[in-house]
């Protein structure tokens, strides 16, 4: 499987496109194309939020997750929903710890100060979850779908320099 951030209006290298997508520079349209060998296997996910995703997101989708997905179990739709969930995160959100679970889920987690935030995205949207812990105590676990802005809002509040929860 290959994933490329792509421009819809000018040919550029993948690196240039990914960088432009991350920084918001140039005329690159904010899209991430997820391609998989075989017919009907190309999907373009338009990131819905205005602005720019964190700089680490394109590489995570293009290289890191596919590399960890040794058994090629993650489908394009999971990558797209992961991208959509992370696209609205504040730019200064650090790169998460990430993994591909044996249950064919993409996992990402952040330990920021006393807070632990984790998301899980699977081929089945029903398993997409957002989990939050503060000071070692579980605050809650909610479906991620429809709560992407909640994730972004939580992150904005807990990042260094923000007002504490």
């Amino acid at each position: 499987m290959t994933i490329v951030a792509t421009s819809l209006d000018s040919p550029r290298s993948r690196q240039e496109v990914a960088q432009a997508a991350a920084t918001g520079s140039g005329t690159v349209t904010r899209s991430i194309r997820v391609t998989k060998p075989g017919k009907d296997a190309s999907v373009t996910a338009m990131l819905e939020e205005p602005g720019s995703p964190p700089a680490w997101l394109p590489k995570l989708l293009q290289e890191d997750f596919p590399e960890r997905d040794e058994h090629n179990v993650i489908g394009p739709s999971a990558l797209i929903r992961f991208a959509q969930a992370c696209a609205a995160l504040p730019l200064r959100t650090p790169q998460p710890f990430f993994n591909v679970g044996d249950d064919a889920t993409l996992g990402a987690e952040w330990d920021i100060g006393l807070c632990h935030v984790a998301i899980q995205v699977g081929n089945d949207p029903a398993v997409d979850m957002l989990y939050v812990e503060v000071n070692d105590r579980e605050i809650g676990e909610i479906p991620l779908n429809g709560n992407e802005r909640v994730l972004a809002s939580i992150m904005a509040k807990i990042l260094p320099g923000s007002l504490v929860l």
Partner: peptide, 19 residues
């Protein structure tokens, strides 16, 4: 090993059922 954090603790995703 790649799914351990720098402090040596495992990520949550290490504890998944096999698909």
């Amino acid at each position: 090993l790649i799914n351990l954090k720098p402090d040596g603790t495992p990520q949550s995703g290490c504890f998944s059922d096999l698909a």
